[in-house]
């Protein structure tokens, strides 16, 4: 057997050149991939800057109302509507998600837990427009019987809650799984009942993960467009009751963008910028807290 001599290799093996081409191609692709986010921010800034420069960012909360044709851009009602929808959805979704997560992780028999997990994953894959369709045809008429017009903050809260239950549940489940089984076994060995173990030991040990799940759920809720566009009535007003129709910030963008021109268009980019900031802040907080949960346990 001959040794692979250097001459043989040098002749037939143009690795160097091929490698150089490969890595430069990959770097270019990666650079382009990383550039998208900067492009998006740049576009939002450049489109919204003229309007922000006109009257400062405060005007979007102090103008007389949302009359874009008369250069009056008060977004307060829509920002409030988005916040109410998000908070309401969290209030509804969190206990339900927590219950499913606890049941699937600790209480249910393996087969039932499996079925429940699959149902949650299936629901996570349902497009939000389908939830919106269901809301329009099932929930809105029911709310309408109770208190017209039906398309309202309440309908929005319920359907957005339904939409974020899978998100929160999946994240909460993984937070609960980080709780060492030794904690649970130790408590059971001491004769503590299951529900008390869950309430006093498991939930406190996983609280950061649960909080992170809620925050990420909130980020999904506030950024959601289709559901709130379809079931909330789209009237620009600060709601005084759960049955008032509202218009969320995202819904406003989707409604007016197709025809907006000039300053009106710029104001929608301002709204987009605001959404970007809000959601990024929520995601950053959620990820940070979630990371602390994983670190604390490991």
């Amino acid at each position: 057997m001959t040794l692979l001599t250097d001459e043989v290799v040098a002749k037939v093996h143009p690795t160097k050149l091929r490698g150089w081409a490969f890595w430069s191609a990959m770097s270019m692709l990666a650079l382009l991939g990383a550039a998208i986010v900067f492009l998006i921010v740049a576009f939002l800034l450049s489109e919204s800057f003229p309007l922000i420069a006109q009257g400062g960012p405060i005007r979007f909360f102090t103008d007389e109302g949302w009359w874009p044709r008369d250069a009056s851009f008060n977004m307060t009602p829509m920002v409030l509507a988005s916040l109410y929808l998000t908070i309401g959805a969290l209030v509804v979704a969190t206990p339900l998600s927590l219950a499913i997560s606890l049941v699937t992780t600790f209480k249910a028999p393996a087969r039932l837990a499996h079925v429940l997990r699959n149902l949650v994953e299936l629901s996570a894959a349902v497009p939000t427009v389908v939830y919106g369709l269901w809301g329009v045809s099932s929930i809105v008429p029911i709310v309408n019987i109770w208190s017209p017009p039906g398309a309202s903050l309440l309908a929005g809260v319920l359907i957005v809650a339904l939409m974020i239950i899978p998100t929160i549940t999946v994240l909460t489940q993984s937070a609960l799984q980080t709780v060492p089984t030794a904690y649970v076994q130790g408590a059971t060995a001491l004769g503590v009942s299951t529900s008390q173990t869950l309430l006093r030991i498991v939930i406190p040990a996983a609280r950061q993960g649960i909080f992170s799940a809620m925050v990420l759920g909130a980020a999904r809720a506030i950024g959601e467009t289709m559901v709130v566009l379809m079931v909330c009535g789209n009237i620009v007003q600060v709601p005084t009751s759960l049955f008032d129709p509202v218009r969320a910030l995202t819904a406003n963008i989707a409604l007016e963008m197709p025809y907006a021109m000039g300053d009106h268009r710029a104001s929608l980019f301002v709204a987009g910028l605001l959404m970007l900031l809000l959601v990024s802040a929520l995601v950053a907080v959620g990820e940070w807290v979630g990371m602390r949960q994983r670190k604390m346990i490991s």
Binding site: M1, L4, V8, V9, K11, V12, H13
Partner: peptide, 16 residues
């Protein structure tokens, strides 16, 4: 990858 392409050579190396 190291530039040995002849199948006979490869087979004999594999066997040995």
């Amino acid at each position: 990858q190291h530039g040995i392409k002849a199948q006979a050579d490869i087979n004999s190396r594999i066997e040995s």
